[in-house]
Amino acid sequence: MRRRVLDHVLVTGGAGFVGSHACKALRNAGFIPVTFDNLSTGWEQAVRFGPLVKGDLMDRAALDAAFAQYRPVAVMHFAALSLVGDSMKDPAHYWRVNIGGALNLAEAAVASGCLNFIFSSTCATYGDQDGVVLTEDTVQRPINAYGASKRAIEDVLANFGAAFGLQHVIFRYFNVAGADPEGEVGEQHRPETHLIPLMLEAIAGRREALVLHGTDYPTADGTCVRDYIHVTDLVQAHVLGLRWLLEGKGSTAFNLGTGNGFSVRDVIRHAGQVTNRPVPIIEGPRRAGDAAVLVSGSQRAETELGWVRSHSTMDQMIRDAWAWDQKPGYDS
Rank of each mutant, 00 (worst) to 15 (best):
A65C: 09
I203M: 12
Q129I: 09
L256P: 07
H194C: 05
A65T: 12
A253M: 13
T258L: 00
D155M: 10
G186L: 01
E201T: 05
M58N: 13
A209L: 04
A271G: 09
A80F: 09
A79K: 02
D266E: 08
I143E: 06
M314Q: 07
L166S: 00
R71E: 15
D180Q: 08
P328C: 10
G222V: 03
R3W: 06
Q188S: 12
V133Q: 02
V239R: 09
A79I: 01
A62P: 12
D59T: 02
Q273G: 13
E182L: 13
H213S: 10
F117A: 06
L39Q: 10
P285C: 07
G147L: 08
T252G: 04
T252D: 14
K54I: 07
L245P: 00
I99V: 15
G16T: 01
I32S: 09
D155S: 13
R60Y: 15
Y146M: 03
F17W: 02
S296Y: 02
V176K: 03
V18F: 07
V225K: 01
I281Y: 04
N116D: 12
I153H: 00
H230G: 05
G13W: 00
G113E: 12
L245F: 10
V47G: 04
W244M: 06
V225D: 03
G259V: 01
N276A: 15
F36Q: 11
N116S: 12
A79T: 00
T223Q: 07
R190L: 11
T223M: 08
T122M: 11
V132N: 08
I268G: 09
I32E: 13
D137A: 15
A15Q: 03
H213E: 13
H230I: 05
K327W: 05
R96W: 09
N104M: 11
A292P: 02
P328Y: 02
A179N: 07
L63E: 06
C23E: 03
A202E: 09
V75T: 04
F164P: 01
I196Q: 01
N144M: 04
G131W: 02
Q69S: 12
A92E: 15
T303F: 11
V185P: 00
C123K: 01
A163D: 14
K150T: 08
F174A: 10
Q69T: 15
P91T: 12
M1V: 13
E192F: 02
F36W: 05
N104V: 05
A152I: 07
R269N: 11
F78M: 12
D221R: 08
E187P: 01
D130F: 02
G127L: 06
F67Q: 06
Q167Y: 01
A292V: 07
K89C: 08
M1K: 08
A271F: 05
V235P: 02
M88D: 07
A68G: 13
R172L: 06
